[in-house]
């Protein structure tokens, strides 16, 4: 049947689980990605995804491929790097992006050395690039838990976070809500990176955040629409990425990110909010 290519892969339980993982992940990672992008911190997310590696590596050394321990390890390493780089930026003259770069590079180097000296190359590849098809029920519950927490946290910090993005000085005069919102937000960047790492590995984890956010930005100029569009784009990328992986035998994680990339370029071309077609063929000018 014609539609077999779209449905057949999901007769396999591992693939169904992978799809559920990506759908659940999308609800947390995509909104976080939207705020990362709007705060011009897209590459910060990338840096943070590298920073979780030594935590994952230490947990791997202590407990083997135990997902829960590796999650906790990644979470701890990510939070340490986020807090230390934020602290460095406030108590020294170093800007936050520069201090984050220092910490994540040290962290990444440490992580690679730890894994490489103690694991097989197959395990290193799984940690670096993930394998969404090996997600078990425990990991799925963990992703669902993280997503639920993320959505609750975003609901609480939504207003101060928006205000902190658009006019940080305003909240600094009005109290400490802005700094607190920033801190909570950074913690949930780490939480979602750790979730996404199971599906996409540490190197591509940020893909489920930034690419859907970038796609959504080409479809709307209104934050209340950008967030749902980002979530839907993440889910669509996930579904077609898995279909692509099943059809070609390519690894699933990179296929999902590649599919999101394809949708990004399509959106960049035809998106009504600043896409190329709208920019270079805007039509006749309006009267007012």
């Amino acid at each position: 049947m014609t539609f077999d290519i779209f449905l057949a892969p999901f007769t396999d339980e591992a693939m169904r689980r992978a799809l559920v993982a990506i759908v659940v992940l999308s609800f947390g990672s995509a909104p976080i990605g939207v705020f990362l992008m709007l705060r011009r911190m897209s590459l910060t997310g990338d840096a943070m995804s590298h920073a979780i590696l030594p935590g994952v590596a230490v947990a791997f050394l202590l407990s083997g491929m135990n997902r829960l321990m590796m999650t906790l390890g990644g979470l701890i390493a990510g939070l340490i790097v986020a807090v230390l780089s934020g602290l460095m930026a406030r108590v020294t003259e170093m800007k936050e992006d520069a201090s984050l770069a220092v910490f994540y590079l040290v962290s990444l180097a440490l992580g690679v050395i730890l894994v490489a000296s103690n694991g097989s190359s197959h395990e290193l590849i799984e940690i670096l690039f993930g394998d969404v098809q090996t997600i078990d029920a425990g990991a799925l519950c963990l992703i669902a838990f993280n997503t639920t927490l993320t959505l609750c946290a975003l609901a609480v910090i939504y207003r101060p976070l928006v205000m902190e993005c658009v006019d940080p000085l305003f909240l600094r005069v009005a109290g400490r809500a802005g700094a607190l919102a920033h801190l909570v937000f950074m913690a949930f960047v780490v939480v979602n990176l750790v979730s996404a790492y199971h599906a996409l590995g540490t190197l591509l984890a940020v893909g489920m955040m930034i690419l859907p956010a970038g796609i959504a930005r080409f479809w709307s100029r209104d934050l209340s629409r950008i967030i749902p569009v980002a979530i839907v784009s993440a889910i669509v990328s996930g579904y077609f990425g898995l279909v692509l992986a099943a059809a070609t035998g390519a690894p699933a994680g990179p296929s999902v990110v590649l599919m999101a990339g394809a949708i990004y370029f399509l959106s960049m071309t035809v998106g009504p909010a600043g896409g190329l077609v709208r920019r270079f063929a805007p039509g006749r000018h309006l009267e007012a």
Partner: peptide, 25 residues
């Protein structure tokens, strides 16, 4: 004013942030 003018927020929503002390989160 250190405003990110590219941020996707409407004039109404921006002005409403003036009520922050009153409405909170």
């Amino acid at each position: 004013a250190d405003i990110d003018r590219s941020f996707p927020i409407s004039v109404f929503d921006f002005v409403a942030t003036g009520l922050w002390r009153e409405v909170g989160a």
